[in-house]
Write a protein that binds this DNA or RNA. Structure first.
Lengths: 245, 245
DNA sequence: CCAATAGTGTCTATTAGACAGTATGCT
DNA sequence: AGCATACTGTCTAATAGACACTATTGG
């Protein structure tokens, strides 16, 4: 930095600019069986008392939004995020002046994925907030549920992002343990796309190119043992296209 | 709103929350020939005095970010945005605490597209700011140019978004007049992807399904007259895949 | 043996990409 | 005529999607 620039910054007095509170909201996804679930908190206060809402919180002065999202994810789930192979990415920013009736809050929404074995959802311990978060099936909530603020719009945006992204990446594997079978992966796709139309045979052929076969096999009670894979390439080429409903 | 809720909001006193200045930055693209250009302003003050920067400004108290982006686009270009068929969409939010050394400024970056006839770039009148914006070829700036703040990262994100989006949508047509020829459209693709590998014949075949033939033809000095199209479907199916470089 | 799952084989219709060929209009 | 551009035709290799088939396990 030049001496001139240092002098400038030292003497800099900011004009009055409109200021806002900066928050993050989280759409946390996890899969059981062939169902896509998201984490919700039940609001204890007005506005939107007793309605479902997405977990979230304010961005601290020394954090960027992504760091705040990771912190809130850990605080609101109480989980070991390493064990759950958590993935967090920025989704979009919601900035309508009236989205929170109390004051101006701009929210940077984030998409978070947690790994499960496909059988049980992670236990959501009560974090710093009074009420623990709960898992609910995404497609049910979008069909029926009332959500606080603009959280329905955020949830829909997150689902759209995830549904699109797994067409051309192996992001779906972030919803599974590091090692998984093709059947597990196919169930994740079916959960996210809310469909049962994925042919197991064709799915195998299209995916194996991007996967690494561990050489080991695993058995799930019934049926032939299944090969265990890890992700080799993060990108699918050609992409797997979502079937028309 | 219930009486109880009204009472709550009336008596609501916000706690102290960290506040930030909220800004928008704009990546404004337009095409001439087979070159993708973006609009830049030359900074007159520290920090980053004399460096190139993206146009932008602060979000006003009663605006959301998208509205602010439209307003700044009009102010900084001085153009009739209707005539240029402007398209603006949110790109991503940049929130590193130190991205502006003067104070905390969180920027919601936006992608803007302006239509040209493919021959000349719109004249950028000097707006409310002292210096007029200028057009520069995007790939040159990314290769050589120094940009202020984190604007190189924003520019790269915008280019990536546009390059990806035109694979499966006709967003590229927003860089052309409402009516255009397939040759014009192909030049836009080549400009955005920085390639010359698009076969004109195959391009015709793949695009015509999503386009509406006006029935009219137009001639450009040399060669056979070209059919004039408008956009019929915003989505391309199947997508047009970017050739490997 | 039966049921359920894993994974491969096969067939057909469609498509991409390369490139040839024809038509049109300007100079 | 000569040339540049617009667009269609054709060929080949690759692919998707449907579905049959075999193999392997537990009950």
């Amino acid at each position: 930095m030049s001496a001139e620039e240092e002098r400038f910054l030292k003497d800099y007095v900011p004009r009055e600019y409109p200021s806002v509170a900066l928050a993050v909201d989280l759409v946390v996804f996890a899969v059981t069986g062939s169902t896509l679930n998201a984490a919700f908190v039940r609001r204890g206060n007005h506005p939107f008392k007793d309605a479902l809402a997405l977990p979230g919180g304010f961005v601290l002065p020394d954090e960027d939004a992504l760091t705040a999202a990771w912190r809130e994810l850990e605080e609101e789930t109480g989980l070991d995020l390493g064990e759950h192979r958590a993935h967090v990415e920025q989704l979009a920013t919601f900035s309508s002046p009236k989205r929170d009736p109390r004051m101006r809050v701009v929210s940077v929404a984030h998409l978070a994925l947690l790994a499960t074995d496909g059988r049980t959802l992670p236990d959501l311990a009560r974090g710093s907030d009074a009420a623990a978060a709960e898992w609910l099936p995404v497609y049910n909530v979008l069909a029926d549920g009332d959500l606080a603020f603009d959280h329905r719009e955020i949830l829909a945006a997150a689902l759209g992002r995830l549904a699109g992204k797994i067409e051309y990446t192996l992001t779906a594997a972030r919803l599974l343990p590091e090692e998984f079978t093709l059947n597990q992966l196919r169930r994740v796709y079916q959960a996210v796309w809310n469909t049962t139309r994925l042919d197991a045979g064709n799915f195998t052929r299209k995916m194996t190119g991007a996967l690494q076969d561990s050489g080991r096999k695993v058995t799930h009670g019934k049926g032939a043992p299944a090969a265990v894979f890890t992700v080799r390439d993060e990108y699918l080429s050609p992409p797997l296209i979502r079937p028309a409903k």
